[in-house]
Design a protein around this nucleic acid. Structure first.
Length: 577
RNA sequence: GCGCCUGUAGCUCAGUUGGAUAGAGCAUCCCCCUUCUAAGGGGAUGGUCGGGGGUUCGAAUCCCUCCAGGCGUGCCA
């Protein structure tokens, strides 16, 4: 059920029937304040202006054409020409009953499913995943889950970095350890250390750095021995990633990995193709594309370098090849990139160029979904206490440990394995939710105390709200799976909860429109808050039977909405905490 | 130099694409456990939406300008 869409359609039709232009939007929104009802239409003023009439008079005409008597018991004109809509309690009750009877909370699947390619996570396999990969991975995964829930055909693409000069150094170090008969697999168990030690050899040992450069060349020319060594490294590194995904509860699997190296054979073809279209110009030894879209006021153009002096390719080339694959082979209608905001110029360039070179269809939507940096409390990019880059796995372990300590202190009588499990779920959820709940585009400050707090817009608060409902359900001793009773909306808190429950679909629609899960987080937080008020004001189990049954339904609907919403965010729920 | 992003309560963050009196949480100060988990709820205090102009019925939101910070800007990704 999408109330906003329903009202939009009806009011717009009434506006057109009253003389507004066919495309005049009704602009129905959730009301800003309770006295303005549940929904308000803001489009009257604009439409009236266009046809040169008084907004309030026009609003009156629209109301004559508008019949909302089935859903609303009051529709009024307010202020300069707003239309305020007050939903009918009986209708809210029956809407909730159908929501309850649906296995997907009455959220419609899309009528025109799109193939959406989502590029997210994309760690560099030379190192272990660190805090900088958190946002792309977590936000991308939430959007992917939401798109799938609405019925779109989603193709995950984990564009991991498995190629480039740094691998020469790493392979040379593997080789050296082998010569020294050292245990290579042990050394690879900590990629950070491995990388650091390889780097030291590279910087300090000339023979080593020469060997490293040789290995880059052999690797790129397809030398079998070298590829074997490389494959071994990549396999270990991918396993590290998968362990982190497992811990994080991210839906990426091996099948979604489409590494940079997969496009190696396409890179010369991309250049040839661009060249054939007359797009390439050689400048200072490099092959460049000069697009006038990237000219400054003086006419100087920032070039897109697609091939280096000496023949090497760059990430622009790889991204162009990837885009051609996503269009040509995967048939994308929409391609989303969850990548750091610092790469926005890069994406503007390859999007513009790939359209110019006909690598993608004009109607295909290419969207960079940029995000800001995770900051420490000092306002600088988040680091560990020792000043290093924070490994994601270590961060998650710390979160689980902190959450466990909290659970153990609040709930000392609980068996330890349950405390541990709650610590695990709450810890991971807290880290993910802290990230998901903030506006994607801005930087945010990483703060343990805030994210693990039970107060405010946090994972623990939501999980606690869910477990409270679960507790009531347990105590009710009802067969909830088959439990169906009429829902009647009477008290103020029941009504607020009912309206909120009906707005779930609107929240998830916002997530996929802009790739912004924080809208869903805000919704769930509001829902949980309204439920808490309802819980305080409206006793459930002690009420008379029909009231009790109705309220129990409201509680059940809250539980399933919280659970479904958190699932879309990639967050587990707990029946007890 | 040029380009992009950011600037909202003491702190951490929202603000549904131009709507009504700018909202939450923390912190501070008051209430509420003989009732389903008080890890909770109810209330109060707190704002020149970075500054200044403009557009219009109406601006945190759009335009111009200035200030502050971040990032990017021909061979890293």
């Amino acid at each position: 059920m999408n109330i906003q869409t329903l009202l939009n359609q009806r009011i717009q039709a009434a506006m057109v029937a009253s003389g507004a232009a066919d495309d005049a939007p009704a602009l129905v929104r959730q009301s800003a304040k309770v006295q303005f009802g549940d929904y308000q239409a803001n489009g009257i003023m604009g439409a009236a202006k266009k046809i040169g009439t008084n907004p309030r008079d026009f609003a009156a005409k629209v109301l004559e054409q508008l019949d909302l008597s089935d859903v609303a018991d009051k529709v009024e004109i307010a202020g300069p020409g707003f239309i305020n809509i007050f939903l009918k309690n009986v209708w809210l009750g029956s809407t909730l009953e159908s929501l309850r009877d649906s296995d997907r909370l009455d959220v419609a699947t899309v009528t025109d499913p799109q193939t959406v390619v989502v590029d997210y996570s994309g760690p560099n396999l030379a190192k272990e995943m660190h805090v900088g990969h958190l946002r792309s991975t977590v936000i991308g995964d939430a959007v992917v889950r939401t798109l799938e829930f609405l019925g779109h055909n989603v193709v995950r693409q984990n564009h991991v970095g498995d190629w480039g000069t740094q691998f020469g150094m790493l392979l040379a170090y593997m080789e050296r350890l082998r010569e020294q008969n050292s245990e290579v697999s042990m050394a690879l168990s900590d990629l950070e250390t491995f990388y650091r030690e390889a780097k030291i050899c590279f910087d300090e040992d000339e023979a080593f750095s020469v060997r490293a450069r040789e290995l880059v060349v052999s690797l790129q020319s397809g030398d079998a021995e070298c590829l074997k060594l490389w494959n071994e490294f990549i396999e270990v590194s991918l396993q590290h990633c998968e362990e982190t995904y497992q811990m994080l509860g991210v839906s990426l699997s091996r099948a979604d990995v489409k590494p940079e190296s997969a496009y190696n054979d396409d890179l010369p073809k991309v250049i040839a193709d661009l060249d054939a279209q007359g797009l390439i110009k050689e400048d200072q030894g490099a092959k460049c594309v000069f697009l006038e879209e990237f000219a400054n006021k003086d006419g100087d153009i920032t070039p897109i370098i697609v091939q280096k002096t000496g023949g090497g390719f760059l990430y622009a080339t790889t991204d162009l090849a990837a885009l051609r694959y996503r269009q040509g082979t995967l048939n994308a209608d929409r391609v989303l990139y969850f990548v750091d905001a610092r790469q926005s110029l890069h994406f503007q360039q390859i999007f513009t160029l790939s359209r110019k070179a006909n690598f993608v269809k004009p109607e295909t939507s290419l969207e960079h979904m940029p995000f800001g940096t995770v900051m420490g409390s000092d306002g600088k990019p988040f680091k560990t206490r020792s000043g290093g880059v924070a490994k994601l796995s270590a961060l998650l372990e710390e979160a689980q440990e902190r959450a466990f300590q909290l659970v153990a202190s609040k709930n000392p009588d609980m068996p330890e394995d349950e405390q541990r499990n709650i610590g695990r779920v709450v810890g991971v959820a807290s880290v993910k939710y802290a990230d998901l709940s903030k506006n994607r585009t801005s930087d945010y400050v990483f703060n343990w105390d805030n994210m693990l707090s039970f107060e405010g817009n946090t994972a623990p608060y939501l999980l606690y709200a869910y477990s409270r409902v679960a507790s009531i359900v347990r105590r009710s001793e009802m067969d909830v799976a088959n439990f169906k009773a009429p829902i009647s909306v009477v008290e103020e808190q029941e009504r607020a909860l009912a309206v909120k429950l009906c707005q779930f679909e609107e929240a998830i629609q916002q997530v996929i429109n802009d790739g912004m899960p924080h809208f869903l987080c805000a919704y769930l937080y509001e829902l949980a808050g309204i439920f808490m008020s309802f819980y305080e004001a409206c006793p459930i189990l002690n009420a008379e039977d029909d009231v009790k049954f109705s309220r129990l339904q409201l509680a059940l609907n809250t539980a399933s909405t919280l659970k479904q919403g958190l699932e879309l965010l990639g967050i587990e729920t707990l029946e007890r905490m």
